[in-house]
Write a protein that binds this DNA or RNA. Structure first.
Length: 437
RNA sequence: GGCCUUAUCGUCUAAUGGUUAGGACAUCACCCUCUCACGGUGGAAAUCGGGGUUCGAAUCCCCGUAAGGUCACCA
């Protein structure tokens, strides 16, 4: 790993007008990773100048989401608490003719008859984007844009520039939707005498239809992914790989590993589609490697209350955990399976549908074989080897199917040997006899 | 529409002038198998189009085309 030459101060400045979006999380991630990689830090700022739309609950959600995935942030700066600072700049700019109070004819409700506009010097601005290269724009067609409604009510562009300056931000890493904002923010920087930070505009995350990811495409907030049972480390790993790659085939990274590997040179220029299928695959890969304690906890919290009330629940649960885990990609599937009654037969007698049982004529013989298995050998492998030859001889489907149905009562279930192991010898025998009645 | 940006398998991407254009997800086939799931093996699949530059172009340049972003008294 290369030694960083300059410490970088990056920032994550969400506006609390909604829950944290996966796109927003990806932006936070890249800023965090870059700062860590460069031996600096990412500062956190709440952009709540829009008093109408900003809500405390959203601020909390953003913070909770960040914590959930393990991105640590300090106390945020709040724009709503810095009105005086912006006011000072505004006054100075007006006094020196860099901005002016403009008379307006309100077109919409809520619009003022007087606003503060920036005196646009109408020149060409070129900046070196760390990801896209040189970008040049003629700011003339921006006109004298509005930077505040009045001295007490600054607008986005002004507040951003002032804050980035005061916070000592060296690198602004943000989504490509901000490219158009950069020239006017540079103009303001020059007006207030702030140094120009480095810019890196990262590619957008798109929905499968290649349009902006929005609610109509399904889950967009981090909270939703959490609720659906995705692991936080998976979301981080997956999101890091949209628009960035390590330069080789490696796909699995922890947050810490990403902090060491990340670089802006490997960030893609073009937008990437959020592929839930791959997310699901990755979640399953991580689930497979989870330590037993955490796995148990995560599955257990998704089991419906009424199922947990079965008297034998704890003992049985221990045994069927691997069966459950085998069948899920996301933890919310645990709830769905239990609610569908998938595992009811582990806790209570199955109810037989005669048509499902098919041919029961080999069951008595099967009972003999099972009876001969010692307790030591009563496990899936042992049971299988005891039964296998007989089953093969008369036709496996003729023995194994009725055996499995008599134990589960279901059309679909784990294999009969596993079923028998979980149920125990006594119960297995009892159920097969019961199916013969 | 103006301005800005982008363009490798369906998707995420590797290859920074010389590779049979590589990997992963998804997909398909086969295997495992009493069912479901898991698992294993193999296959198909891409350089947007047209011109240059060069011995040689996915890679550099130009022109098209397409996609996205942005044009607020939101951020």
């Amino acid at each position: 790993m290369e030694t960083p030459k300059t410490k970088a101060i990056t920032r994550f400045p969400p506006s609390p007008t909604g829950n944290l979006h996966v796109g927003g999380l990806r932006t936070a991630l890249f800023n965090y990773l870059y700062a860590k990689r460069m031996g600096g830090e990412m500062v956190f700022r709440i952009e709540d100048t829009d008093k109408e739309r900003s809500k405390k609950e959203y601020e909390q959600n953003i913070l909770d989401s960040l914590n959930w995935v393990g991105i640590k942030v300090g106390e945020p700066w709040r724009q709503s608490e810095r009105t005086e600072v912006y006011k000072g700049h505004l006054k100075k700019m007006i006094d020196s003719g860099l901005a002016y109070i403009s008379k307006e004819t309100p077109k919409e409700e809520g619009e003022r008859a007087e606003v503060i506009r920036f005196k646009n010097p109408n020149k060409k601005i070129a900046f070196e984007d760390l990801i896209l290269g040189t970008i040049e724009v003629d700011t003339t067609d921006l006109g004298d844009f509005v930077i505040a409604k009045d001295l007490e009510t600054p607008l986005y562009h002004l507040a951003v520039v002032v804050d980035d300056f005061d916070m000592g931000v060296t690198h602004i890493i943000r989504g490509q939707e901000h490219i158009a904002n950069t020239p006017r923010q540079i103009l303001i920087q020059e007006a207030i005498g702030a140094p120009r930070p480095f810019y890196g505009h990262i590619p957008l995350i798109l929905a499968p239809d290649k349009t902006k990811l929005s609610k109509r495409h399904g889950a967009v907030s981090v909270t939703q992914y959490k609720d659906e049972g995705y692991l936080p480390e998976v979301l981080v790993n997956f999101l890091a790989l949209i628009g960035w790659n390590p330069g080789n085939d490696r796909e699995f990274f922890t947050l810490d590993e990403l902090c060491k590997e990340f670089s802006l040179e490997k960030v893609q220029k073009s937008s990437g589609v959020f592929d839930v299928k791959k997310l699901n695959w990755m979640n399953k890969e991580y689930i497979k490697k989870l330590p037993k304690e955490r796995l148990t906890e995560l599955v257990l919290e998704r089991v419906p209350k009424d199922k947990k009330d079965f008297p034998s629940f704890s003992q049985v649960f221990e045994k069927i955990l691997p069966i459950i885990v085998d069948r899920i990609e996301r933890f919310d599937e645990v709830t769905k399976m239990f609610e569908a009654g998938e595992f009811d037969y582990f806790f209570a007698d199955p109810v037989y549908e005669k048509s499902l049982l098919k041919n029961t004529s080999h069951l008595p013989k099967l009972l003999d074989i099972l009876g001969g298995i010692t307790d030591d050998n009563w496990n899936a492998a042992g049971i299988k080897s005891a039964v296998w030859d007989f089953a093969t001889e008369v036709g496996r489907g003729e023995v194994l199917w009725p055996m499995r149905v008599s134990l589960s009562g279901r059309e679909k279930s784990p294999d009969p040997f596993t079923l028998a192991e979980v149920l125990g010898k006594e119960e297995t025998v009892r159920r097969i006899k019961m199916s013969l009645e």
